[in-house]
Design a binder for these strands. Structure first.
Lengths: 343, 343
DNA sequence: CTGTTAGCGCATTCAT
DNA sequence: ATGAATGCGCTAACAG
């Protein structure tokens, strides 16, 4: 009574006095099956609401038509945009997506990867947790022939497929913008030093300053572990400098939110006493007073889409070495600040 | 050479000169297998890095140990909190989660459900798109014995499992708060009339006014389709009333963001000329100047967790009719407004 | 305590 | 153009 309803190939075959193979082929428009038979089969299949049982197909084909995606945090607009892009690509390829949030916790990330492995996903897309230091899992999946593609937060190794945003372009635009507004005391609140993303920001920062003939002052480079507390500590330090910076570039929009909050509490006026530019360009800025001057767009959708594209190529074993390091430029987006100075 | 590495039960059995069933049982600590044998099997399995092939297990057990979740939009904090809760529950039950975003598009929602059906998920959790009117899919899944649980945005039918937040409690608190601050011209910017959630808000609104002996003025109830344009139109109307409301309750924090933006552009000062309370309580308020007075928390995590709990009960066929309509109270959260009036 | 056997639903190879 | 036979990896009923 339970599953009695769900029709199988065999049932269709019996009802039509055909063999399962004929039915199977008819359903797939195999050329060697007669038109009449094909029609009869399809008709009954439609009537019975037949659906092939994916479980059997997965088993037979040694595939699951499923990819796994590990992200730090869905609540960040950056990643929800990314996952939407991946989902769309997956749908287009007739794949489904299983998901895990690492919440920037290395152990949790590993558990998710474990579960993907057990699930026998056909491929994996990862944007690393900010605290991941152990990359042994890469070898594990290599051995199992499960392709892995990284994006955004990627390991600092050459032997992987990875897609990143070139943070230098946006960073240099940011500095040029600040300089053209007359700033020369420009600070950077950077992320954890272990991150490739932080390294790249710092390189761009220094390059940008140099190209504007500004001395690089190491005291103007701060680091945060990206927690609210860490962000505030960095800002406290920054504000207590005798020669306080007038312009600040933050690792991300979240860092900027924390920074601006503290700055306001200290009685300083944003976009008057101190100016901000940050990374990520999240959509909410347009609804906020006293936003940063600009934010650097990293095109999460594009990055994720490319990651999915490469992954599906790898799954299809088109191992056309189309370069396993893709870099997209980032771009500075000026936020409408017409209301900012009117306060 | 490809899959040659991946060990199976059979291989372990051959190497150990045992039968596959013995190996299978040993790996599961079946009591009828001798300790020595169990040890030998486990040792070799560990050496070979054996992992059972879920595809075969799915097939054999007629299950996928996978649940599907359909949500409107991952980028809303409400839903990303919800999905985290579901994920945690799923992990605890050894299940994986496949995900789809409807983006409030009925057709897209249906496609996602289709794909879940093909994937033979063991159960489904849905928070409906704001534009869904056709609920035929409920019958389809019923027929296939795939349990479905709704939360937050649920169908207005009795014969389904659903978990919602009781919007009335929060709504009444909101009105009481406004009244105690001296407001009596209180407006509601509500969502689409077709939504159960809108209906409930309106009921609470009217109840709250009545209990405070305030006449219900129908002109103070507005509707928006929740698009930015719709939100703004509602606010335009509201502001153009001769007897302009001094206090506004909005359908959600997103509506409030749009509303406050427009209000500012009109030169009005928030928390002085006009006051807001809204639904959802998203985390970013604490980082924003000129936030609403309060926001009504709907506990997405709790709702989602409960939905998952019920779903897993249904999957296990513990069809203990533990009530298929669960309601959690909502609660007004006062936002720290110390900085608000100091501008 | 351990082995043998059968079968889940489907795709496929080999016959006819 | 169609059918029969096989096997994917695993579990479980049955047999010893």
């Amino acid at each position: 009574m339970k599953q009695g309803q769900i029709p199988t190939l065999k049932q269709i075959a019996k009802r039509l006095k055909l063999s399962t193979s004929t039915v199977s082929r008819a359903l797939k428009d195999h050329p060697s099956i007669g038109l009449v038979t094909t029609m009869r089969v399809k008709k009954l299949a439609a009537e019975l609401n037949y659906e092939p049982d994916n479980r059997a197909i997965f088993f037979k084909q040694q595939k699951t038509f499923t990819i796994g995606v590990v992200l730090p945090n869905l609540s960040e607009a950056f990643f929800s945009t990314a996952i939407s892009a991946i989902e769309d690509m997956a749908t287009a390829h007739n794949y489904t997506v299983i998901l895990g949030q690492s919440l920037d916790d290395e152990a949790r990330e590993l558990k998710i990867l474990e579960s993907f492995k057990k699930h026998r996903v056909d491929g994996i897309i990862v944007s690393l947790s900010k605290n991941t230091n152990n990359f042994d899992f890469i070898e594990t999946f290599q051995k199992m022939n499960i392709p892995v593609v990284f994006f955004d937060c990627v390991p600092d190794r050459e032997d992987v497929y990875r897609i990143v945003s070139d943070l230098e372009t946006g960073m240099i635009e940011a500095i040029n913008t600040f300089v053209s507004c007359g700033h020369n005391r420009i600070a950077l609140i950077n992320g954890p030093e272990s991150l490739l993303a932080s390294k790249q920001r710092e390189e761009g920062f220094i390059k940008g300053l140099k190209s504007n003939d500004i001395n690089v002052n190491r005291d103007y480079i701060f680091h945060t572990n990206l927690s609210e507390k860490g962000n505030q500590e960095a800002v406290e330090e920054l504000l207590s400098l005798v020669d306080r910076p007038s312009a600040v570039i933050c690792f991300s929009d979240y860092v900027t939110l924390d920074a601006m909050k503290l700055v306001r509490e200290k009685g300083l006026v944003i976009n008057q006493d101190i100016f901000f530019i940050s990374f990520a360009n999240f959509p909410i800025w347009n609804h906020i007073e006293n936003k940063p001057m600009a934010s650097i767009e990293q095109f999460p959708g594009k990055q994720a889409e490319k990651a999915a594209e490469i992954l599906f190529d790898l799954i299809k074993e088109d191992e056309t070495n189309k370069g396993n390091h893709i870099i997209y430029p980032s771009r500075l987006i000026h936020l409408d600040s017409s209301k900012q100075t009117s306060l």
